[in-house]
Each structure stands twice: as C-alpha cells, then as structure tokens.
Design a protein around this nucleic acid. Structure first.
Length: 191
DNA sequence: GTATCGATTAGC
DNA sequence: CTAATCGATACA
C-alpha cells in the first residue's frame, strides 16, 4: 500500500478531505500496527475559517497547522479527548483535515482494549474515538507523515461503491454554512 | 491573574 | 438532555 506523497496534502483542505475518504490511516506502535479506512472527515481552512483553531493566527496549540503539509495536528479538548488532523495546503496557510471516523482494518483487538468496547462499528466512530482506537495523543502532534510511525496509504482494494456525501461540519457554532464534512454514505462506522 | 469554552463522549 | 474534566485562549 503506497504512502501518499506530500504533494497530496498541498491542495485546498476541502479537496484533500474529499480525497482522503477511502485512504488508510496507519499507526505503527511498539506493540503492533493499528490502521483504519477513513470514512468521515472535516476540512478546516485556517485564517479563512472562523471554525478553525488557526483562525486567529498561530498559537502554541495551532503552531503545527501553520507548518508544512503532511504532518499531524493533534489537540486535547474537553479535558479528556484527543482529535487528530492531517495538515494540508501550503506552509503558512494552516489548512487541516480532521479525521472523524475509521473503519478498523488492523489491530482490531488492540482497539477493543483501548476503547473498552467490543462493538466493531463503535471502535473508531467519532474523532475522540479515532485517536483512542489508534492510540494517538499529544506526543504525536507535529509528527511527519513520511515518518515510520504514522502515515496515510492509498487502498489496495477498489474504491467504495457507496457515494461520498457532504454536509455541514459537526460541533461548531461558526462557519456552519460551509459544507466541509465528507463521509461514506450509509457506512456503519460514520458518526 | 481569572473566566469562559470547547472540531466530544457516554449515559440517562 | 447533562456531567465529566482541564488546557487553551481572551481579556482585565
């Protein structure tokens, strides 16, 4: 499964987001590989996007988004959850794609242990669950996707027959008019 | 320094 | 619907 090149991430966040559906996010942990097919994402557009953590310019938290594309932006929220983004667009523009849901592929038993549930569809459904299932946290903030630890691969299997739908992003109070959430129609792992 | 609020989740 | 739970951010 070939790894996506950095150029893939150098485009506008909504385009990258749409194209990430069906790709595979992989985390190679010391205990083994965990991976899942991306079935739901949201795009954020930095200074152009009031819903983005980067809207008001760089801060210690959002710094990674202002860096080069093809890196992870991981943040901690609600005092208990982590969310993972893939930084895209050009360096300085702070675009990012939030990974909201995965269809688990490898490391499923490890995911069950991390998540404390046996139900397949709930293992990586929702952004907080994605990071828990893949065992990603703040230590991975800023990690290069060309590293040997975390990367995105194109699928060996053919694309989904199900169409990709789009709609407003979830859990935000501003920028609701932008339809930058993308998901696989009818997929059980979508949040 | 202090107050507010989350790109959420699980449970009732 | 609400509690949980705490760092980042904005503002005085």
């Amino acid at each position: 499964m070939p790894r996506l090149p950095r150029a893939f991430f150098e485009r506008e966040a909504p385009v990258v987001a749409r194209d990430l559906i069906g790709k595979v996010l992989v985390h190679r942990t010391p205990q083994g590989i965990r991976s899942g097919r991306i079935v739901e994402v949201e795009a954020y557009r930095g200074r152009l996007d009031p819903a983005s953590h980067a809207f008001r310019g760089p801060t210690p938290r959002s710094a990674v988004m202002f860096g080069p594309p093809g890196h992870l932006y991981v943040y901690f929220t609600y005092g208990m959850h982590h969310c993972v983004n893939l930084v895209c667009e050009r360096e300085g523009s702070a675009g990012a794609v939030l990974v909201r849901a995965l269809e688990p592929l490898r490391g499923i038993d490890a995911m069950r242990r991390s998540r404390g549930t046996a139900e397949f569809a709930r293992l990586a459904r929702g952004p907080g669950c994605v990071t828990q299932a893949l065992a990603l946290d703040l230590r991975h903030d800023g990690l290069d996707l060309s590293s040997c630890e975390v990367w995105v691969a194109s699928t060996a299997r053919p694309a989904h027959a199900a169409p990709i739908l789009r709609g407003p992003r979830i859990g935000i109070r501003v920028g609701v008019e932008r339809r930058w959430r993308f998901w696989v129609a009818g997929h059980p792992c979508v949040s």
